[in-house]
Simulated scan of single mutants.
Amino acid sequence: MDKHYIIATDLDGTLLDHSTYKFHKAVPALEYCQQQDVPIIFNTSKTYAETEHLCRVLDNNHPFIIENGSAMYIPKDYFAKELDSDIERFDAGAYWLYKFGLNRNEILSRLTRFAKTQSFQYQGFSTMTTRELCRCTGLSLPKAAEAKERQFSEPLLWLDNSENQASFAKHLKLLGLNVIKGGRFVHVLGQSDKAKPLEYLKRLYELNSGSEHTLIALGDSANDKAMLETADIAVVIESPAHQDPVIDIHPHLIRSRFQGPIGWNETVLDILQR
């Protein structure tokens, strides 16, 4: 391939099957990307523990973005050059942690104060037991425990109607919080989304390589909208569970023929081998 590509992908419902969380039907495309040195960037609502575990399973040594764009982890020594910016960077063991959102305790504090004056119906991860989360998601107990290890966001099981959800989001915006609808949960975080760290990361790749990169993004939910809109090539993966994210105008928009990892595999191979 003459072009330099970066692939940014959502996980649940996109690279991973919505119901089983398996990825094996995407293995041909994953292996092809590895052979061609195309970095695959996980850009997910999942936690550090969940995402780093999947990186190890798939032998993916590239940066990853967690909790809907709240933070990005880049392996140390991955880049030689650093951007001049005001993004906070912290030492996180084997990684540099770039923080784009708020700490979870601050989010929970604002939600607690807000709940005293409002009557919206929802249940947050912080009040769920691990077994309750298992029932909501189909995750095993160990996986559900990893999902509860939030650092920068609070997912909510929405128990109210959709009209009230829109009102809820408007109220929280006044408190400096962003509300993003995912595949299963409503996520409350700071003023970030999946696009902001990804745009920063693309600039890092281009700074360190001295060449332009084409960004391919794949997602299936409303929380992927910002990521898809910022990509050079946006791929909407067909979902069995909900409507596709609404992408109004995009110069290169692709909709997969198949759901989940099958659609991911076919579309990625088609783009890279075209």
Rank of each mutant, 00 (worst) to 15 (best):
D2M: 09
H4Q: 14
I6F: 08
A8V: 04
D12H: 08
D17H: 15
T20S: 12
T20C: 05
F23A: 03
F23S: 10
L30A: 12
E31H: 13
Q36F: 12
Q36N: 15
I41Y: 03
N43K: 02
N43I: 06
S45P: 07
K46F: 02
K46E: 06
T47N: 05
A49E: 10
E50L: 07
T51V: 11
T51M: 12
E52A: 13
E67M: 09
E67L: 05
N68C: 14
N68T: 02
S70E: 05
S70Q: 13
A71I: 12
M72H: 12
S85E: 09
S85Y: 12
D86Y: 03
Y95P: 06
Y98D: 09
Y98A: 06
G101T: 00
L102K: 15
R104S: 03
R110Q: 10
R110Y: 07
T112D: 05
R113D: 10
R113I: 09
R113W: 10
A115G: 00
K116Q: 15
Q118V: 11
F120D: 05
Y122F: 14
Y122Q: 02
Y122E: 13
G124A: 09
S126M: 09
T129K: 08
E132P: 00
E132N: 00
C136A: 08
C136P: 08
T137L: 04
G138I: 02
L141T: 12
A145D: 13
A147P: 08
E154D: 12
P155T: 11
L156E: 03
S162V: 14
S167W: 02
F168P: 14
F168Q: 11
A169V: 10
L172S: 06
K173W: 15
G176R: 04
I180W: 02
I180A: 14
G182F: 07
G183F: 14
G183Y: 09
R184L: 08
V186Q: 07
V186L: 11
V188T: 11
G190L: 03
D193M: 04
D193V: 01
K194Q: 04
A195R: 05
K196E: 12
L198V: 01
E199M: 13
Y200V: 02
Y200H: 15
L201Y: 01
L204S: 04
Y205F: 10
E206G: 09
S209W: 05
S209E: 02
G210F: 06
E212Y: 06
E212N: 06
H213E: 15
T214M: 06
G219Q: 10
G219L: 05
S221M: 02
D224S: 01
D224Q: 08
D224V: 01
K225R: 13
K225H: 08
T230H: 02
D232Y: 02
V236C: 06
E238W: 01
Q243Y: 05
P245D: 05
V246S: 04
P251C: 04
P251G: 14
S256W: 03
Q259V: 15
Q259A: 15
P261D: 01
P261C: 10
P261L: 10
V268P: 07
L272D: 11
Q273F: 07
